[in-house]
Simulated scan of single mutants.
Amino acid sequence: MSEETGKRRLGRGLAALIGEIDRPAEQQAPKARADGVVPIEMVVANPRNPRRTFGENDLTDLAQSIREHGVVQPVIVRPGRMDGTYEIIAGERRWRAAQRAGITQLPVLIREVDDRVALELAIVENVQRADLNPVEEAMGYQQLIDEHSYTQADLGQVIGKSRSHVANTLRLLKLPTIIQDMLTSGTLSAGHARTLVTAADPSGLAKRIVEEGLSVRQAEALAQAPKTETPAQTRANDNAKDADTLALEKLLSDQTGLRVTILHKEKGGEIKIAYRSLDQLDELCRRLQA
């Protein structure tokens, strides 16, 4: 079976591998049957888990629930190193809360999977339950791209999201660290942050969004405004170009539906494509991949 075929099949079979995990109580399916129980000290965290933050209040509440009802859903693990430990694939929050609750034996589902599948399972479980903040989600996607040669289309299929969702999420990693910190803390929403990717001063605009309580649409309008070229600048640039260059610019603009600018340099040159929204950028990417 090819790696590509394996990715497609895994995308359809992830629910079966994960089981119905950590749903709200009112929606909860019958609890998954554990493969067994292991001493909790023999279960270790996965250092590659995309989830990095665990809310203190959430852990306290879950620990209290575990004291009263036990661990309702098993933790998914895989055999670890030669020391007999098990590495968590999905369920680190339950494991942490169980430790707080003083649980000594942990119910587990044991899966023999490689690093790639383990990372997929961890990402899918967290994304489906909205446990990852936008930066953690983006970093998880980037891990699969860097370490396992995924395309954005592969990711969308495996995690059950659209390619545009994957692309928009990955763009958040281009933002300054200060804005990523605001996303992690919840000070800034992912929708607001996506408007900052093309802003001239993303940090300044992020501060203004928070202080003034701007909507996503207002933020998008402010992000686009500084990038417009005045008519005088456009005419000056066009007058300096030869007819062949202008004709080629028009051809490319007609093909993409966006303004294309060709700049010649002493050696080589560059092509600039201006877009006014992320939807236009997504459409351009779709055309280039067709």
Rank of each mutant, 00 (worst) to 15 (best):
L132C: 02
G55V: 00
A225Y: 03
R48I: 08
R276E: 10
P47R: 03
S2D: 11
Q143E: 15
V135T: 07
V124P: 12
R286Q: 13
D181N: 13
L214K: 02
V216C: 05
E3L: 14
S253R: 04
L10H: 05
T234C: 10
N49V: 00
R116H: 11
I159G: 03
D22T: 03
G36M: 01
V210P: 02
P231Y: 04
T230Q: 08
Q27P: 05
E20T: 14
A200H: 08
E3G: 13
D238R: 14
D131Y: 00
H69D: 09
G102E: 02
L196G: 04
D279P: 05
L252P: 02
V216M: 09
M1I: 10
G11Q: 05
D201F: 11
E147R: 12
V108G: 03
V72P: 13
L188Q: 04
V127T: 12
P107H: 01
I123H: 10
K272Y: 15
I76P: 02
K272D: 15
A167C: 08
R52D: 01
T256E: 04
S2P: 12
V38K: 07
L183Q: 07
H69Q: 13
E92I: 01
V260C: 05
S164Y: 11
T261Q: 10
V117Y: 00
T151R: 07
A97N: 01
S2G: 13
C285N: 15
L246N: 06
F54V: 02
R217D: 15
R51M: 01
T5W: 14
K227R: 13
E136K: 07
E249S: 09
G269T: 01
E125Y: 06
A25T: 12
A232N: 13
N239W: 08
A90Y: 06
V124A: 14
T230A: 11
R51S: 00
R163M: 09
A240P: 08
W95M: 08
P50T: 02
G269S: 03
S203T: 13
P202R: 02
L121M: 04
G269W: 04
E211K: 15
V72D: 14
M42P: 09
D146Y: 09
L106A: 06
I271N: 06
V44A: 09
L251C: 13
Q280H: 13
M1E: 11
A199G: 01
H148M: 11
P47H: 02
R287H: 06
G268P: 09
T85K: 10
A16C: 13
Q180A: 00
Q218T: 02
A45T: 07
R9E: 14
L17W: 01
V113N: 04
L258C: 03
L59P: 00
D146T: 08
Q28N: 09
A193Q: 03
H264K: 15
I88H: 02
K250R: 14
L14Y: 08
E68I: 09
K161S: 11
V158G: 03
L155A: 03
E220Y: 03
V38P: 04
G6C: 12
E136I: 06
Q157E: 12
G55L: 01
A138V: 10
I40P: 00
V260S: 05
E125H: 08
Q28P: 04
A247D: 05
P79G: 07
V216N: 07
A45P: 06
A243V: 11
A25C: 10
D244H: 13
T85N: 12
I145S: 05
I110W: 01
R259V: 14
S2C: 10
L205M: 11
L288H: 07
